[in-house]
């Protein structure tokens, strides 16, 4: 009961999460809170399991221990039917976009509506055009995914993610590999969608600058633990070496430049 009350302002809560891949601990007792209606960012060096975290929240992976509550429901205690019910209210934006390559842009956005609702065709058309208008791609409705640039594909995927008016969206590396203009477009879109639709957003990213401009709250993960949390401003002023290294992008620091290896001179001689 206490748990539920303390988490009342949070849509997603992660408690004591432990997840192993083989012998490697990806998460080792991680606690995270994602407040409703806010943009929360998860940052950290590549390979710290940021994408894995989103898959855990979406119920695609099972944690070794700990629990994840989404809107009060323990994701990994749900049966298949309830899990799918919950997923209808979650949107996820994959790094690759994950558009269905045999359907055009219009059909891709219409896909979740056709699968989950019995709306008449005229209604679907209106809804799809509204979603595409929101991401500025109403004119691209007849293109196939192969004809889209990376940034456009991500925007179509975003339109598809909001097709069923979810309560939250998870963005997996929305900025990586984007030119400055489409990066700006995505920053604007994430912000606008969050505010106008009253969404809760979780952004996984390692682009410090862009993330700083949109996030209300940032968690920094490293080696399976939360090493820093707070608003973008407080993290920039943080005295923690790990946080500083990440925020300023220093090549060496607590996070070593070299992957763990035997002594260099010995390695060369023997």
């Amino acid at each position: 009961m206490d748990e539920a009350e303390s988490g009342a302002g949070c849509l997603v809560t992660v408690r004591d999460l432990v997840f192993r891949r083989g012998d490697r601990k990806i998460f080792d007792g991680v606690n995270l809170d994602f407040p409703r209606g806010k943009i929360t960012a998860i940052m950290g060096p590549s390979g710290t399991g940021k994408t894995t975290l989103l898959r855990l929240i979406g119920g695609q992976l099972r944690p070794d221990s700990g629990e994840i509550l989404v809107d009060g429901q323990n994701v990994h205690a749900l049966g298949n039917r309830d899990l799918y019910g919950l997923r209808k209210r979650m949107g996820m934006l994959f790094q690759s976009g994950a558009l269905l390559t045999d359907l055009n842009v219009f059909e891709n956005v219409a896909f979740p509506m056709r699968e989950h609702t019995r709306l008449p065709e005229s209604m679907i058309r209106i809804l799809v055009l509204m979603k595409l208008q929101a991401v500025g791609l109403r004119g691209a409705r007849n293109l196939m995914p192969a004809e889209l640039s990376g940034g456009m594909a991500r925007r179509v995927a975003l339109a598809r993610a909001i097709a069923l008016d979810p309560m939250m969206i998870m963005y997996d590396e929305p900025f990586s590999g984007q030119d400055p203009i489409s990066m700006g477009v995505l920053v604007k879109l994430i912000h606008e969608l969050n505010d106008s639709l009253g969404l809760t957003s979780i952004v996984v990213s390692h682009d410090v600058h862009e993330t700083n401009t949109i996030a209300d709250k940032i968690y920094i993960l490293s080696e399976g633990k939360v090493v820093g949390e707070g608003t973008p401003g407080s993290l920039t002023r943080s005295t923690s070496e790990r946080v500083q290294q990440f925020m300023t992008g220093a090549p060496d620091g607590p996070e070593h430049f070299h992957y763990e290896a035997p002594d260099y001179s010995e390695d060369l001689l023997i």
């Binding site: 997923r87 994959f94 390559t101 699968e115």
Partner: peptide, 21 residues
């Protein structure tokens, strides 16, 4: 290829079971 390009995974997250669909 649908698996490699995350289309199956994307479908799961859209609450569509790729095995059935």
């Amino acid at each position: 290829l649908m698996k490699a390009t995350e289309q199956l995974s994307g479908m799961e997250m859209m609450a569509v079971d790729p095995v059935k669909r």
